[in-house]
Write a protein that binds this DNA or RNA. Sequence first.
DNA 1: ATTTATGGCGTTAACGTTACCGCATCGATC
DNA 2: GATCGATGCGGTAACGTTAACGCCATAAAT
Lengths: 352, 352
Amino acid sequence: MATIKEIAELAHVSIGTVDRVLHNRGRVSSDTKRKVEKIIKELDYKPNLLARQLKLSRDYTFGVLMPELHQDSKYWERPALGIYKAKRELESQKINIKFFHFNRYSEASFIEKSNRLLNDHLDGLLITPILIKPARELIHKIPEDIPYVFFDSDIPDSNRLTFIGQDPYRSGMLAAKLMRLMTMTDGSIAIIRILPEDYHIDQRIEGFLHYYRENDGKKNIQIYEWKEQRDLSSLDIISQKILDEQSDLQGIFVTNALTYLIASFLEKHHTERHIRIIGYDLIDKNVDYLRSGMIDFLINQFSIDQGYQGIYSLFKHLALKQKVDDTIMMPINIVMNENIDYYYYSTDDLGR
Amino acid sequence: MATIKEIAELAHVSIGTVDRVLHNRGRVSSDTKRKVEKIIKELDYKPNLLARQLKLSRDYTFGVLMPELHQDSKYWERPALGIYKAKRELESQKINIKFFHFNRYSEASFIEKSNRLLNDHLDGLLITPILIKPARELIHKIPEDIPYVFFDSDIPDSNRLTFIGQDPYRSGMLAAKLMRLMTMTDGSIAIIRILPEDYHIDQRIEGFLHYYRENDGKKNIQIYEWKEQRDLSSLDIISQKILDEQSDLQGIFVTNALTYLIASFLEKHHTERHIRIIGYDLIDKNVDYLRSGMIDFLINQFSIDQGYQGIYSLFKHLALKQKVDDTIMMPINIVMNENIDYYYYSTDDLGR
DNA sequence: ATTTATGGCGTTAACGTTACCGCATCGATC
DNA sequence: GATCGATGCGGTAACGTTAACGCCATAAAT
């Protein structure tokens, strides 16, 4: 690889001049500029990123605004794991991370934490804008020169550096396809819709229904709503209601990480028929039921990777000054008993 | 992060001494050694990898011994793509790569190319040992100080740095599970066994049969053999034979990347029943038939990533002097129409 | 005619690590 | 007591990049 020094020698100038040309810092005559640029092209010069980073390395502090880790059955531990992983990997580059955890069912909490975030003079932000209204207000208050990344949810018409997530509509279609394969005979399907309203969950349901509309329009599909934040045990009531109402129930589509609760209920109150379960996310309890066969499929969001990519995008933009893709879509991953080992890592080593 | 300089100051020694302690290069009194080591621990010193690499960077040339790219329906283009990707990413580190392509159906070709590989004084080797016998002979001739990595296939009792691949037995089980889901009613299943004998293909079949034995022992499953290298069109004869012999055929499991040939045949000679197809690998033609619905599932081997990880492992070991895992297992990935977009990248940009 | 900008360039000190060079000191050897 | 080797250590150049600094011209302003 060509270096700045070689370019300087060939152009009969000093490395300072080459640097000025490379970075358009002026103070170079147009003649020498042209000469240097020609040689840069001829040698196909690419800066040595190691040297650049070594030289430029300075402390960066990133702020992470995300739900409390224990919420959604500890779902949020997984992106946090990825964030720590990125931090460890970038250790040499002096990356600091500050967490701001909000209660995902309280706008007040989101607002309070986002104000703290704003007052902390951070170099980059990683945000989960699941509470859309206060999140919209937040982005207006973020100084223009501070890059921010969304993960899990998106606000497309914002100035975000990038969004990292999964297409929930597509994943719903995929769930429907798998469900249909497992339940080709007559019978009904139940969908558990978790409240309060959530873009992701709604899109998953839309996708699911879309697939059935296109491929099996006559199928009896019932949606049951459940207010999660009240009390986990209240799901048992809904489950019982489903069993009572749908005597020919074949499968249940659970639209978030609480899938294991349904599995647990069915295990206890097991019925004649084998009721199929498809759900989301590789949290510990879901994985247990997948292994035991109570849950048939889980859709993996690559939550760990989402956190990792979030921090890495900020780093790439700020420290490496490299281009970051506008959107980073995570693959929709089908996990079952036979391939779970290759996807699941316990969150035990979260703290480092 | 602590630096060598800081340690030196705190220990009242020079950075040279700290370096000697860190690398056990002797010429340090046991007193100062202890003193320095204490401070190293206290500060939890971790070397700055950027600086290390920058300093140590030297040219590495890796040799890749793999089948000709066009073989197996251009399957081998995909790992090659990953190899180029790694090369591009490690550009700053002066990595050169030399390819040695052999005819995967000729031992003579393998032997000839591996001799060339050995005579080329390379710093590390990336090898596909699909021809086991000559590969075993090759590893005896590799100088002890030259690390080599296997990908795609493995020879476990060798001195390889690592192996990168997928568990074929498991993937066969997974294929069987999906096949069973799609064909719950009475009927038979055909397996296409591609010859000459191949460890991967045999394991896939074993896994497939194992799953059915455990879950549906009475299922009628027939294995049809086909000598691939002769002539692609001869597969039509086999296909016709399957249709003739299995009047109640429900599905076909194709054990390698040639899945599209079966799909193409069934498209032309389409039958009353919908015959399900499960196969391997995201090569272009397979993806087309997956999109059109002729192929139901493809199992993805992450072939691109295999190439990438292969080069990266060599680099990690030689340049970064970091530990490399003994085995790198690729996840077994289920790809269908609904999620193909997140896995498939065309090989068009192969050459750079 | 002298000062004051400003353009055009070279020089240099870092970033953190590595490894070579060389200067002392000291005991052993002839 | 001069020579030698070994031991213990400090100093320093280099990896490639960046950006501040400073010097010399020439042009503009007083």
